[in-house]
Design a binder for these strands. Structure first.
Lengths: 347, 347
DNA sequence: TGACGACTTGACAACGTTGTCGTCGTGCGT
DNA sequence: ACGCACGACGACAACGTTGTCAAGTCGTCA
């Protein structure tokens, strides 16, 4: 049979030159209405669809924005991509997604493939490696925006990790907690490092000694939450509350605590998750809205398209402490007198 | 400054012809090792990355597989895409994702853009429209696989909606339930239509009259779960159990029931969701594994690449009824004597 | 009437890569 | 010594589209 119809076939069928067809397709003016109608009819009849590859070869850009994230199976990133896609659509841009699975080498491949290979109109990525020297040649021509984790010299959209974490921990301290477990510390994420700083800030300000026994360290994602939880709750001076440094940890914590009948253990999570407000008690969270972050990221990217040589900015997206119950509970056996707050929380 | 290095620059720098560079990049044999080394060195030095657009223009395919789904914010689809991406990566294919938001017109645009515009190596899509006549010209050249919802004449990967739903409803009937609410009926999805058939199958076989009062109808996603739940529980002959026809409905049901203190109302969900096994009682589910479906879909797609003219097949991916508690409860006031089962469920 | 501008159209090159084919040299068999 | 096969490489066209530029038609104004 015949191959896909190309612009040539349309031109022949409409009795015009290929350039005129091109003009019609691209909605350039200066085409006689009658000619346009003939061409349109031929396009319709043949089912012509312009070839994207040829188009972007010619124009040097492919009208897509590349997104590189940790994993699509992560609901935070899935929602992030969804937000970006919606806005990109309105802008007439399509979306190219790929996951790194936290592998810096794969990150490199993907970013170079997008920027140099596909010549995307811009890239939004959750950085894995500490530095991305290989992106330097493209800085001036392709807008790059880091999300979730910031990097020096690159436009970034992040939340105030340190401050937000401090807010959460402060609430626990105000309720009388002195032994707050930190789940989990993970070398791979600078965000978590900053959240730890916020945690330490509060302890310092409240004159509470930092105890590394209260920190669960996650090596390559292989932390056994069950046994770590048992450990910190079994210390001579046990934890009276949990601070989950990320949603994944919060989910694990919640699951284990519920399964073992300790669902009333005070806890606050950095990062919301579905059902955090359904279970009893509701899990109090620092809410890090993926839609907000996604929208901010693509907004920044679109701005960079206009003025490519703008200085890199770091955008801080606001968070909120959602008080749902789990984080508004004083220690069961408190050594200090409780303030009026006690049970129940606000809201 | 200088523009991005092209194959010509590499050729000049290495002192060879562009064709030789092409050979090295594509790992064709018949290149002298020493020459190859020179070229490789030049590539390294210049930071050359081959242009994808030109490549796919020449070869007629772009080495990507297109995925068209309802929405990335839906965890089921996010996991599905994640599974497909992993397998595609192993195959050296990249992934192009886009959401329809259930708009058939947008589905059409996306599918045509992928198949005709981008000339993808294959498409996996969750069909929205009842028919896709515009895909006919590509049937022979581009592998197409429908997921989640099957369509005549197109390779499909689905679960046995009718049988699985029947399995769940049967369990409720076996426990003595005669008034089982169906949440929700939604015209837009044929899967839900088939699940309804399974529901009716069981009622018929058990000689239970179908009562349309027990069915919550969702028009364009605007169902008010809260009031519908109140309605079916307030009937003269009220519902004693719920069958959620989809995960979204299950989440809404669970949320409302928990918030209103009726969390022990018997219920089974078609479709698992996170935390279904954490809350108390756990929500019994028909488990429809997105990874299983994703893997099957891409496996079928890869097979179609080998033999493009194979007859369309419908693959049925197995489901499992996860008994977690909520679906193993007899009616509170049962008109019939209870079998030995009673409370607690198996597992 | 002639010239000039506005509008419409087309021929052709170019984008960066790969496929086709031909050339050149070298080693081997006879 | 001659021919032949084979390995290594390059010149050139082609993929489908858009940008550049020139050419054609028509109406209008002096």
């Amino acid at each position: 049979m015949s191959r896909r119809p190309g612009i040539k076939d349309v031109a022949a069928s409409a009795g015009v030159s290929i350039k005129t067809v091109s003009r019609v397709v691209n909605e350039e003016m200066a085409v006689h209405p009658e000619t346009r109608a003939r061409v349109l009819h031929a396009i319709q009849a043949l089912g012509y669809v312009p070839n994207t590859a040829a188009r972007s070869l010619k124009s040097g850009t492919n009208g897509a924005i590349g997104i590189v994230i940790d994993s699509l199976a992560d609901t935070f990133f899935a929602a992030l991509v969804s937000a970006i896609e919606r806005r990109a659509l309105a802008e007439g841009l399509s979306v190219l997604v790929a996951s790194t699975n936290l592998d810096p080498e794969r990150e490199r491949e993907l970013l170079l493939s997008f920027v140099a290979g596909h010549q995307v109109a811009g890239v939004i990525f959750a950085p894995v490696a500490a530095e991305h020297p290989y992106l330097a040649p493209f800085r001036s021509s392709t807008p790059l925006v880091a999300v979730d984790r910031s990097r020096a010299g690159i436009d970034s959209v992040v939340v105030d990790d340190r401050g937000s974490a401090a807010l959460a921990v402060q609430q626990l301290v105000d309720l009388g907690h002195r032994r707050i477990a930190f789940f989990d510390q993970d070398e791979r994420f600078s965000t978590i490092h900053r959240r730890m700083s916020g945690y330490l800030d509060v302890l310092n300000a409240a004159d509470i000694d930092f105890d590394s026994e209260l920190v669960a360290v996650n090596i390559d994602g292989s932390l056994d939450y069950r046994s770590e939880i048992d450990r910190v709750l079994g210390l001579d001076d046990p934890a009276t509350a949990f601070f989950a440094s990320n949603a994944r940890a919060a989910i694990e914590l919640t699951t284990v605590l519920h399964r073992t009948g300790r669902q009333h253990t005070p806890m606050i999570s950095f990062g919301d998750f579905s059902f955090a407000d359904v279970i009893q008690p509701g899990v109090s969270c620092i809410d890090q809205d993926p839609f907000l972050i996604g929208n901010a990221a693509i907004e920044r990217l679109l701005a960079l398209r206009e003025s490519p040589s703008a200085e890199p900015q770091e955008w801080i997206v606001p968070t909120a402490l959602l008080q749902r119950g789990s984080g508004e509970v004083a220690p069961f056996r408190s050594a200090v007198p409780l303030p009026a707050l006690a049970e129940g929380g606000s809201r």
